[in-house]
Simulated assay, not measured.
Amino acid sequence: MKSRIYFIILTAFLFTACSSKSGSGYVPKPKGYNRIDIPVAQYQTLEGNYPYTFEYSKLAEIMPDKSTNAEPYWIIVNYPTLNAKIQFTYKPLNGDLKKLDAHVADAYKLASKHQVRATSQTEQIVSLPNGKKAVVMELEGEVPSHLQFYITDTTQNYLRGAMYLNKATLNDSLTPIVNYIKKDCIHILKTLNWKK
């Protein structure tokens, strides 16, 4: 009999303890992401036999582009700790304006491939301290490439860059990495110089 009374008291206690005064019931926890700490940016100068030079993050390493269609001077600025990269494709113009037109059209075509998953795309012409101008295209949404750009001297050199994330994670959780590499891309453009 005593155990039955204890059971009834315990059951009554549990029902009153679990009931909500507001009547709203269960409330799920808010969505959370892993914390990503990124150090303050420090830069180094690109070394090597390239027709261009720029400063890039000390978090990154330079790797040759080994894709099947890679050409000379195509490189990847790889961020191994951030699981991201910037792919650079270089094209010599040799004074041929038709080549320049084709490369610019190709840059827009490659950016438009991401519009299927992009929620927005903005384009701006960035004036750089060295007097050069670059076209920067930012894409928002669940896209693998959040930033693409190109810069040219219009007669001899054309360089296109595209930032890629290596993870298939939702991009909201990678916002600190995306913002860090976007700033790096702008720094690369600001410090870029042609060697010929």
Rank of each mutant, 00 (worst) to 15 (best):
L192Y: 01
W194K: 12
K2T: 07
P30R: 02
S3N: 13
T191P: 05
Y73C: 03
I125Q: 03
L165W: 02
Q115S: 05
N49I: 10
Y180V: 10
T175V: 15
H114F: 12
N166P: 00
K99D: 02
T81E: 08
Y164N: 04
Y73E: 03
T122M: 07
A60K: 10
T191K: 07
C18W: 14
K21P: 09
E123N: 14
N69T: 15
L97E: 10
T191A: 04
E47S: 11
Y56D: 01
K196C: 00
F7I: 13
L97G: 00
A70Y: 04
W74N: 11
K167P: 05
I5D: 06
K85G: 01
H114Y: 13
Y90S: 08
N94E: 10
N83D: 03
L159M: 03
Q156S: 10
S20N: 14
S145T: 03
S120F: 11
L139I: 09
F13A: 12
G131T: 11
L82C: 11
N69R: 15
A84G: 13
S57G: 07
D153W: 05
E138P: 00
I8P: 02
S120Y: 12
Y52S: 05
K195E: 08
S67F: 00
K132I: 11
H146I: 00
E71W: 15
Y33T: 02
K29T: 13
T53C: 14
N130T: 00
D184F: 08
N69Y: 15
V126M: 02
Q148M: 03
W194E: 05
L128S: 06
T16V: 15
I75C: 04
I62G: 04
Q42C: 01
T152D: 09
